[in-house]
Structure formats: structure tokens, C-alpha cells
Amino acid sequence: MAKKRLIVAITGATGAIYGIRTLEALRDSEGVETHLVMSRWAEKTISLETPYQPEQVMKMADYCYDVEDVGARIASGSFPVSGMVIVPCSMKTVAAVAHGYTDNLVARAADVILKERRRLILVARETPLNEIHLENLLKLTRAGAIIVPPVPAFYNRPQTIDDLVMHLVSRILDLLEIPNNYTRRWGELVEIKSEQGL
């Protein structure tokens, strides 16, 4: 059976760990092939925010591409992929994709995903959001993208920061139709509380 090809892009918004954990989860998923592209600011943010270096993150993917290489195979609709996730996604990248400004491989690959009507997930990271941000996000939603802000969930009783991160990663994998057990589901929590008499 052919592997499921997925593009993972990491941009310079804070929250680089979301991208790293997503890559790790996809690496550990059966039948998945990952194609990674990182912006220059993503590389800096990874070094600033996490114990990882960009070179270590690159090794988590099956294939890596230079962000300036707009001639890479993931920049063509003739290269079949199942979907793409930009995690985290800066507002600069949101603006570029929303307006078709494909000046680097992240924006170009996302543009191709939209034109081919494939699944595009943007983990858009900014707060507060101004009118321009909101209009760009709405434009992308109308174009078929799925906006997944990294909003923490507390119904699963997280104990660590990684619990919060992995809950979001689990939601991303759900949207990519990748089976996973990285977080406890709502129904499971209700059953546990019922068993405990809570």
C-alpha cells in the first residue's frame, strides 16, 4: 500500500514545539511519508524556544526542502499529497497564502494545496487578532483551508505543557485522518468520571 504523503511546514511564529511534536507523531504513524519545509524564522524560533536544533528537526522528516526552492516537487500540483499542515503558522504566512503571494516554498506549497482542493490546515498563532488577521483567516476558510488556533483544552485534565501540546497534535492528526491516541477523548473522560462517581 502506498504511503500517505503529507507536507509539514513550520514558520517563525511562537509555538515551534507544536510543529516538532506533529512531525514526531507523523514519523511514528504507520504508512505516512512527511515532506518538511521550514522558514528561516522557524529555524531561529526552534533554537530559541526548544531544546532542539533545526538539523535535528529535519531528521524527523522523510524529505526536507529549502524554503527558497519554489521549484521543489511539493510546489507542483502534479506531485500527489494528501494534505498539508502549517504548524505554527505566522500571520505573515497567513497573509501570503490568503493573497496568493507565493514568494517562498511554504506559501507556494499551500497555494498548490488550495488549488488542487486538498486539505490545508493552518495552526494560526497570534493574539490578539486585528481586523486584517481576521479577514485573512476568513478568506482562507472560504477557500477551503481549516484554521486550527492552538487553543489549550482543559477537559482532559492536562498535567504538563506537553499534555497541552499533544492534545492539539492529536486534533491535527484527526483532521489529517491519521489514527492516534495522543489525548483522552471527551467520551472517554465522561466514562471515567462516571466510573469514579463524579
Rank of each mutant, 00 (worst) to 15 (best):
I17Y: 05
L164N: 04
R157S: 15
N104E: 03
P128K: 03
I113Q: 11
L6M: 03
A25L: 06
I147R: 03
V87A: 14
P179E: 01
Y18D: 12
K59C: 02
V87I: 15
D103G: 06
T127A: 10
K3A: 09
L105I: 10
L6Y: 02
R185S: 15
L23V: 06
K59R: 14
A72L: 02
R21E: 13
L134P: 10
R27V: 01
V112Y: 09
I161F: 14
K44H: 13
V106Y: 06
M91E: 09
S82N: 15
D163F: 08
T50V: 08
D111M: 10
G144Q: 07
Y101Q: 09
D66C: 07
M166L: 15
L140A: 11
C89G: 06
M91T: 06
L120N: 04
S47Y: 08
L120Q: 04
H35W: 00
P179V: 08
Y52I: 12
G12H: 02
R185T: 12
F154Y: 15
M91Q: 07
L36S: 00
E116I: 02
K59L: 08
E135F: 05
Y52L: 02
K59E: 07
E131L: 08
L138I: 14
V97S: 05
S78H: 13
T34Y: 01
N181R: 01
I113T: 13
T160V: 06
E131H: 09
M84I: 03
Y101C: 06
P152C: 02
N130E: 08
K193P: 09
V37D: 01
V165G: 12
L164V: 14
P179Q: 01
S39Q: 03
H133F: 08
S78I: 09
H35Y: 02
H133G: 04
M58T: 04
Q196R: 15
A42N: 07
M60F: 01
P80M: 15
A75R: 06
A72N: 04
V57S: 00
M91F: 04
H99Y: 07
G77Q: 11
M1I: 12
Y63F: 05
H133Q: 08
V112K: 05
T14C: 03
A124N: 11
Q53I: 09
R27N: 04
R117F: 08
L164H: 03
E116Y: 05
Y52H: 06
K193D: 14
A75P: 13
V97F: 06
V106S: 00
L120E: 07
D103S: 14
I10W: 02
M60E: 09
R108A: 10
V57K: 01
E43K: 14
L134E: 13
V37T: 03
W186D: 13
Y182L: 14
G12Q: 13
L129I: 03
L26N: 00
W41N: 14
Y52K: 07
L137P: 08
Y65M: 02
T93R: 09
V106P: 01
I121F: 10
A143S: 11
K139R: 15
S47I: 09
L23E: 09
E33M: 10
G12L: 11
N136M: 11
L175R: 14
S47N: 10
L164K: 02
P54S: 10
